[in-house]
Computed example of a mutant assay.
Amino acid sequence: MSDIHPDVQAALDAARDLRHRIAELRDRINAIHARRPSPSGAVVPEIDAMGRLTDLYLAPGTVDRFDSDQLAAEIMAAIRESTADAGRQYRQLMDSDPWPVTEPAVGGAA
């Protein structure tokens, strides 16, 4: 027989469930990565859900093909598109009701 009051046990169970939900949501957020190519397709950045640049691919010969202003424009265009895509993915995840409401457990005898 347990010495824990049913209301305390219900609170502990709810806290454990919340920790699991938070961990699952964090994993789903961490899985978001957007890779949108530049207009020429020569530059592909990778942006995470927080808008951080995590990788940048430049196709072979890209640096030789563009002058510095054109290359900067290619990189920035691709980063803007990837950032917008990552933001859309994040909003879609958050709008999908990641926290479905469940009925709280009702304790037993007082």
Rank of each mutant, 00 (worst) to 15 (best):
R26M: 02
A86H: 05
P37E: 05
R19K: 13
A105W: 00
Y90S: 01
L56C: 09
T102M: 05
A42P: 00
P45Q: 07
R21N: 04
P37N: 04
R52F: 14
V106T: 14
R91D: 15
A14G: 11
R88N: 12
R65Y: 12
T54Y: 04
R91M: 08
A11I: 04
P37S: 11
A84C: 00
M94S: 04
R16S: 12
T102K: 13
R28A: 08
A78C: 06
I47Y: 03
H5C: 03
M76I: 14
R21D: 06
P37T: 03
A110Y: 11
T83G: 12
S68W: 03
D64Y: 04
E24K: 08
D17A: 15
L58D: 03
S82Y: 06
Y90A: 02
D97I: 00
L12Q: 15
L93N: 05
L71K: 02
I29W: 00
D69V: 11
A34P: 06
P98R: 07
D7Q: 12
V43W: 06
D55N: 15
S2I: 08
P98H: 07
S68Q: 13
A49K: 04
S96H: 02
A14K: 12
V63F: 09
D13N: 14
M50Q: 12
T54E: 10
D3G: 15
D13K: 09
I75W: 04
A78S: 11
L58I: 06
M50E: 13
M50K: 08
A73I: 00
V44Y: 09
T83F: 09
Q70N: 05
Q92R: 14
A59D: 12
H33R: 15
A31D: 14
W99I: 06
L18S: 11
A34E: 05
S68K: 10
L58Y: 09
V8T: 12
A11R: 11
V43F: 07
S40Y: 09
Y57C: 00
Q89N: 07
G41V: 03
R35K: 13
N30H: 10
T83N: 12
P6I: 01
P60L: 03
R28Y: 00
E24G: 07
D69T: 11
W99M: 09
L12K: 12
A14Q: 14
A15C: 01
A78T: 05
E74Y: 08
H5V: 06
V101C: 01
V8S: 02
H20Y: 04
Y57W: 15
A109P: 05
